[in-house]
């Protein structure tokens, strides 16, 4: 097991390096730059700007300097567009925000989704099943860019219960709508995956044996069915968790949370190279880590899997 982990971590290093190089090249290949603006900057001023940010160096040199600073100084450089701030500052400020609402939304989505899915499977083809399937399909067809304005219309404009946006340190009033808007469609997917996987497990031999030897239904479900039924759910949860905690551009945009989801998209549109690289690397590291975690969880859940 330990060997396996070390091996996976060793592969992660070249993976990240390739990610950095490809992102860097793609970004620089896009037309326009951080200083392209409506007020065309005169050539001599542009030269001064490029010199200041090292953009006048050849690309390979820029990449090397960048990797060196990241690895040895943990310095992701200054933002080219938000000039008062460094990339480290932007991520340190924005990531805790998306982490907070993303993690809460994740927990909610998993709890409700799994519960819905399990009940739908146990009471297969009953009204409860139809209700659960109905709810999850309803939630699935309401993507967050539809959910967000609807929530604001109801809770802010009509009822006046919740503020229409902002963060204010993440007080609960500011969390409710982002969490609901983000969790809904994930919850629906989790419910559907759980239901179908649970149905399959409930029809398998070992469950039939457990039921035949007279175990009570809740023991059969909780002790024998739930764990194997979770395998496909967990493989879905790994990448889902990462994309939820690194924020959603829609949530950040509608609710003005200040999270990094919007920073990521804006940095691409603004050609804010350093911010875009910083967030790309953050997402890369998280994705690699959680994929590893998911694989380890597999081994724990399914005794047949051995590394």
């Amino acid at each position: 097991m330990l060997n396996y982990i070390i091996k996976r971590l060793a592969i992660a290093v070249p993976t990240l390096l390739v990610l950095i190089i490809i992102s860097f090249l793609l970004m620089h290949a896009a037309p326009g730059g951080p200083f392209t603006s409506e007020r065309a900057v005169p050539p001599e001023v542009l030269a001064n700007l490029e010199a200041k940010y090292g953009l006048n160096e050849p690309l390979y040199k820029q990449i090397a300097t960048y990797v060196y600073n990241v690895v040895f100084h943990f310095d992701f450089g200054p933002s080219f567009v938000y000039k008062d701030r460094t990339v480290n500052e932007i991520i340190a400020q924005g990531f805790p925000i998306t982490l907070k609402y993303g993690a809460i939304a994740f927990v909610l989505a998993v709890l409700i989704g799994v519960t819905l899915g399990v009940f739908a499977a146990i009471y297969h083809n009953s009204w409860l099943d139809y209700l659960a399937v109905g709810v999850s399909i309803g939630a699935q067809v309401l993507p967050n860019f539809v959910m967000a304005p609807i929530l604001v219309l109801i809770f802010t404009l009509w009822l006046g219960w919740l503020p229409g946006g902002g963060w204010q340190g993440g007080q609960w009033q500011f969390l409710v709508m982002p969490v609901i808007a983000l969790a809904t469609s994930y919850m629906a997917s989790i419910a559907r995956i759980t239901r179908s996987s649970m149905l399959e497990v409930l029809n398998s031999n070992h469950i039939r044996t457990a039921t035949a030897k007279g175990l009570p239904t809740h023991t059969v479900i909780l002790r024998h069915a739930l764990k194997p039924a979770m395998l496909p759910v967990i493989s879905y949860l790994g990448p889902t968790f990462v994309s939820m905690i690194t924020g959603s551009v829609v949530i950040d945009m509608y609710f003005s949370t200040g999270g990094i989801g919007l920073w990521f998209v804006n940095s691409a549109l603004n050609r804010d190279y350093s911010v875009m690289m910083g967030i790309t690397i953050l997402i890369g590291v998280l994705t690699i880590s959680f994929n590893l975690l998911v694989d380890l969880l597999y081994a724990w859940i399914d005794p047949r899997i051995r590394y």
Partner: peptide
């Protein structure tokens, strides 16, 4: 100063008195 990216969302919040 509130940063609100979507102008329709800003209008809703204006109408809600924010």
């Amino acid at each position: 100063t509130l940063v609100i990216n979507d102008e329709n969302q800003a209008l809703t919040r204006y109408l809600a008195g924010e």
